[in-house]
Structure formats: C-alpha cells, structure tokens
C-alpha cells in the first residue's frame, strides 16, 4: 500500500499555546505510517473574526488558507472547531459559484478532524498508547453537532492500554467557551464552565481529554483558578503516550 500523505493544519491556538499537542498529533500520524507535511506558512482558519461578525476579515484569512492547502490531498486538523470552520463555514464566506467558493468546498471535503481521520480513513482503533490513569472525555460542540463526531475519540481512548475511561454526565453540554463569547460574556461563560467542572469532579477522573484546545484552555483556567488538580490533555497527547 502506498503511503498516505496528509497536510497538517495545526491551528493558531495549538501553534501558539499548545505546541505539544501539535507535535503529538504529527508524531502520532507518522507513527501510524502517514507522511505528514507541515506547511510553515499556515496561520489561522479565520474563525475568531467569523464568529465575531467580521466576515471580510475572516474572508481574507480564509483566502490565504485556501492558497496554502489548495494542493493538499488530505488535511488533518487536531481541532473539531477549526475543522468545522473549514468544512462547514468556509464556503459561505465566498459568493456561491465563484472559484474561491468551489475551492473552499473542495478543501472542506478533504479536511478531517484528527480522530475521525484515524478511525474512518486509516481504519485504526488502537494507537498503541499506554496510560494507566482515570480519564474522561469532553465533546466539543462543533465536533459533536456540526461534524457528528462522538464515537471516534471514544473508541480510540478506550483502546489505550491500562486506561480507565469514565463518561461525563451531560457530556453533550457546552463548556461555555464559545470563542469571543468567553470574554464578551465572561461571567456567563465561566458559570457554564463551572457546571462542566462540577461534572468533571463528579466523574472522579484525573484527566479530562478533548480534541479542542480552546475548550481545554477554558476548563484548565477554571480548574487551576479553583485549585482543582484535574489535568487537561489534548487527545493526541493521550494517544501517543
């Protein structure tokens, strides 16, 4: 079988704040026999501007993303939210039928969220990781509702050797991050987040895993502020343990 080539879109937040998650994802893919290309020209998917109502600005950023990835066979993203931006919203930034709209749609169809790529494209359920800890999983909203991905990460997590996986109560509820919502309505965002923190504590898990560092950054900030010892971890970091 010829080697599969993928382009890795790290996302700006992983690049700037959670590089270890990005490295883990790339290493994981390579360990599974995938040739990973990481184009250093990449920046952001445009979601911060798009979600705040600045479509022109989002459009500009999206255009550079299209340029960078137009030749890519497959694009893998370690974020449900950014994958959703590319797959579901990017075309809406361009006028229907235009070459850019076409290009956005094509790129969207070739873009995969990491766990979905592993399970449904590579056909892998086990990454060979070992992690003897009690772990729970947080579904990020875009990944769950727009992409319909919920079983893939669970399958992968449950196959980690030695792991004790527990489900969160109300797993499908938002953690309250919501992009700029987290600072525009910071008190509501934190209040919603604290419900999630409560559920995480009730689960008894020592680690909360998610495939979106934005949710994790929010939850981690709440956990640390309250001095709760539960650690946050990106899915890729777990799968490479």
């Amino acid at each position: 079988m010829s080697q599969m080539n993928v382009s890795f879109f790290a996302t700006c937040l992983v690049d700037q704040v959670y590089p270890q998650a990005g490295l883990a994802a790339m290493d994981l893919l390579e360990r599974l026999g995938v040739a990973v290309e990481f184009d250093l020209r990449q920046t952001c998917c445009g979601q911060p501007a798009f979600n705040s109502g600045y479509r022109q600005e989002a459009c500009r950023v999206a255009r550079s993303l299209l340029e960078i990835f137009c030749e890519s066979e497959r694009i893998v993203v370690p974020s449900g939210s950014c994958a959703t931006m590319i797959k579901c919203y990017l075309p809406s930034l361009f006028s229907e039928g235009s070459p850019e709209w076409e290009s956005a749609r094509e790129i969207g169809a070739r873009t995969f969220e990491l766990s979905d790529f592993l399970v449904n494209i590579l056909g892998i359920t086990e990454t060979g990781a070992t992690f003897a800890e009690k772990v729970t999983f947080h579904d990020s909203c875009h990944q769950l509702r727009e992409l319909g991905i919920s079983q893939q990460p669970r399958t992968l997590i449950k196959h980690v050797k030695g792991i004790q996986f527990v489900e969160l109560e109300d797993a499908n509820r938002c953690c309250g991050f919501g992009g700029t919502f987290a600072v525009k309505f910071d008190e509501v965002s934190a209040a919603i987040g604290n419900d999630k923190v409560g559920r995480i504590r009730e689960s008894g898990a020592d680690y909360v895993v998610a495939n979106d560092v934005s949710c994790l950054m929010h939850l981690d900030g709440l956990l640390k502020r309250q001095g709760i010892g539960v650690k946050t971890m990106h899915l890729a970091e777990l799968l490479i343990k």
Partner: peptide
C-alpha cells in the same frame, strides 16, 4: 479582553517556543 478572561480563569502558560519553532528546531520531520 484578558481581564475578562482572568476574572474567573487563569491564563494558560505560554510556551517558550511555538509549534512552528519547535518543528523547525528539530529539523522538520522526525
């Protein structure tokens, strides 16, 4: 907007090197 973030949440620790820098430093592919 960082003040709004920090009312109820800690800011994440910012790593010394970005992913791109780390990637470059180890010479691209492993």
């Amino acid at each position: 907007p960082l003040s709004a973030w920090q009312k109820k949440r800690d800011l994440p620790p910012i790593p010394a090197r970005s992913l791109k820098e780390l990637y470059r430093a180890r010479g691209g592919r492993k």
